[in-house]
């Protein structure tokens, strides 16, 4: 949660409050003079599924790498599992599972060996590493490919293997950087299903995504990131309620028509958003708004009424869409 320092200090200490797994305040990451993460605050509670939603370049990966204790902070305060990454990196990493944005699988080893050796990095015995590798291959439905090379696996299979690898040390906290980017819908749903099961088992998930449906499906709470800053925080529901209307009517006009509409849609909705290829009317009742458009004698080529989404929240907050 983006709680300003002053407000934080004002909150009385609650003895029964579960300490957060991650606590970040004023977190900054700079590369040279370029600021990739600009003083962000957030907390992640045990058992939560927490998301960073934002477009490419927002600073999601830079933030995740600091949480993962592989990238030193430029400034700010960070505690992961109650420990300080700058002094306890290896101890923290021993209890993290990391799914990096790039798969980073070992192309010289088989599917099973990838898991075995990773278990060894966490100091598991050979036997235990082998046992867990078998179990995890079952969990991500790759048992049949156990002895195959990694290279010929599909993108979705590779991603599942990386998730299995991240689970080899039975982590308290799983960090997933764009877990489903570039996958086809079927592969994405299979992955979401696995992540959902982990969440039900009580694993704390922290993920980044630029897909609003992924954030809505998986996250209990999320922060919206844009240009190195957190611009909003809350549950998907709260964010939609706070920054958008219940429904949206999307109007597409014949080429050239939209430019000449100038003022003619005024007053038809709580808010009107003009995109290059369509106009969005934000209203509690999208159908009613669409009917009112027709009543004014306007004839859009197509009308789509849908529920508001996080995409609309992002558009509202930044004036841009999430995926370009």
């Amino acid at each position: 949660m983006a709680v300003p320092h002053a407000a934080r200090d004002a909150v009385p200490f609650e003895a029964d409050r579960v300490p957060p797994l991650i606590e970040a305040r004023g977190l900054v990451k700079r590369f040279g003079t370029f600021t990739a993460v600009d003083s962000v605050d957030f907390e992640v509670a045990p058992g939560e599924a927490f998301g960073f939603l934002g477009p490419n370049g927002a600073g999601k990966t830079s933030t995740m790498r600091m949480i993962g204790c592989v990238s030193p902070l430029t400034d700010g305060y960070l505690r992961v599992l109650g420990l300080d990454p700058s002094t306890d990196g290896p101890r923290i990493r021993a209890r993290l599972g990391v799914v990096p944005q790039a798969d980073s699988l070992d192309m010289e080893l088989t599917v099973r060996e990838n898991l075995q050796i990773y278990g060894r990095y966490f100091d598991l015995s050979r036997r235990e590493a082998l046992r867990r590798a078998g179990e995890l291959l079952e969990f991500v439905q790759l048992s049949e490919r156990a002895n195959d090379e990694v290279e010929p696996l599909s993108g979705g299979m590779k991603r599942r293997l990386v998730i299995a690898r991240a689970l080899i040390n039975e982590p308290d906290l799983l960090l997933l950087d764009e877990p489903t980017t570039g996958l086809d819908p079927q592969a994405r749903h299979l992955l979401w299903d696995r992540l959902y099961r982990l969440k039900q088992r009580g694993v704390t998930l922290v993920l980044t995504t630029h897909y609003m449906d992924e954030a809505e499906q998986l996250c209990d709470r999320l922060v919206v990131m844009d240009k190195a800053k957190i611009v909003a925080a809350g549950s998907p529901r709260e964010l939609i309620e706070r920054y958008s209307s219940r429904e949206v009517a999307e109007l597409r006009f014949a080429p050239g028509v939209q430019a000449s509409l100038d003022g003619q849609l005024d007053g038809l909705a709580d808010r009107v958003e003009w995109l290059p290829d369509r106009v969005l009317l934000y209203a509690d009742d999208g159908e009613a708004a669409a009917t009112a458009v027709h009543a004014r004698g306007l004839r859009p080529e197509s009308v789509l009424v849908r529920r508001s989404s996080l995409e609309d929240v992002f558009l509202r907050l930044t004036g841009r869409s999430l995926v370009d």
Binding site: G68, V70, R93, A94, P100, A102, S104, D106, Y118, Y121
Partner: peptide
Amino acid sequence: WDKLYDAMLATPLT
């Protein structure tokens, strides 16, 4: 190419 060291550094290895 394989980013193998990145994968190793995400574990307790240094």
